[in-house]
């Protein structure tokens, strides 16, 4: 288990990120199905949240009412989250290898109420930000200080519901809500720009009343700084646009959208693991 020390350095975070990446490729290879590309692009974001002292949470008490909420709206990236939850102590690391098997808690997409630490059932894209608005409203109603983080895919932002939620959060000035867009520039069938472009994404969120922070999504120190800046924001919701590479960390998966939803072969797994060990 990786302990989150109070003063965890960027180098330590980078090490944790490498561990999570190895889990992800192992799990998906063992399951012979899953989504490596979008799991690997989100690793630094999830590492900073769980190990960079951003989320206030208690793995021994997942239902703690005052915990910060993290909602993985791009549910197909869940291997990355399972790896972080296991390394945080929510469940044994050995359980990761049961991904996608019958009777496993490691479902192919997140299932609320089944897996400790999972806050929402997702996998039908476009819904998580609305759920985040609900948590942020509940915090305001109850006078609680917990914060809510929602991770979205860039392709996912094509869904209209994302913008309904963005409009509501902006108009209600939900300062405790942070959206993070894993902007890896690809969706399932190809490049986001070719299919239905989001450009300019920052201006869209800004025009809906959000503060926008751009960050290199693989500079884990910079991602942590951005998340801490968002923590300090209380007047309006913050959107962090994390510029990432799909398949990051495994050369033959990087920017190769074949690995959006395909598992590595046994040989490819060995190559991937050796690259991640370097």
């Amino acid at each position: 288990m990786v302990a989150a020390t109070p003063t965890v350095s960027a180098a330590e975070l980078a090490n944790i990120a490498r561990t999570l990446r190895s889990h992800v490729v192992r799990m998906i290879a063992a399951a012979k199905s899953g989504h490596p590309g979008g799991s690997l692009s989100a690793i630094e974001i999830i590492t900073a949240l769980y190990f960079g002292r951003v989320l206030r949470h208690d793995p021994k008490n997942p239902a703690w009412p005052d915990r910060d909420r993290f909602i993985l709206s791009k549910g197909h990236g869940v291997p990355a989250l399972y790896a972080a939850l296991a390394e945080s102590g929510y469940f044994p690391v050995t359980e990761l290898m049961t991904l996608r098997q019958v009777s496993s808690r490691m479902q192919g997409h997140p299932v609320q109420g089944l897996t400790p630490g999972i806050e929402a059932s997702t996998g039908s894209l476009g819904q998580g930000l609305s759920v985040g608005v609900g948590h942020a409203l509940a915090a305001r109603l109850d006078g609680k200080s917990f914060r809510t983080y929602v991770l979205l895919g860039d392709g996912e932002c094509q869904e209209g519901q994302v913008w309904e939620a963005a409009m509501t959060a902006g108009n209600y000035e939900l300062g405790s809500l942070t959206a993070i867009v894993d902007s890896n520039r690809y969706q399932l069938d190809g490049a986001v720009e070719d299919i239905n472009s989001l450009v300019p994404l920052d201006a869209k969120f800004e025009s809906f009343g959000w503060r926008v922070i751009d960050v290199d999504g693989h500079d884990v120190g910079a991602v942590r700084v951005a998340l801490h800046q968002a923590r300090e924001s209380h007047d309006v919701p913050v959107c962090i646009i994390a510029h990432t590479t799909k398949g990051k960390g495994v050369t033959f998966m990087e920017n190769n959208n074949e690995f959006h939803g395909k598992s590595p072969s046994a040989d490819q797994l060995q190559v991937a693991l050796s690259q991640l060990a370097e």
Partner: peptide, 8 residues
């Protein structure tokens, strides 16, 4: 559809 689970 199998492994993807309930959402799909």
């Amino acid at each position: 559809i199998g492994e993807d689970g309930v959402s799909q």
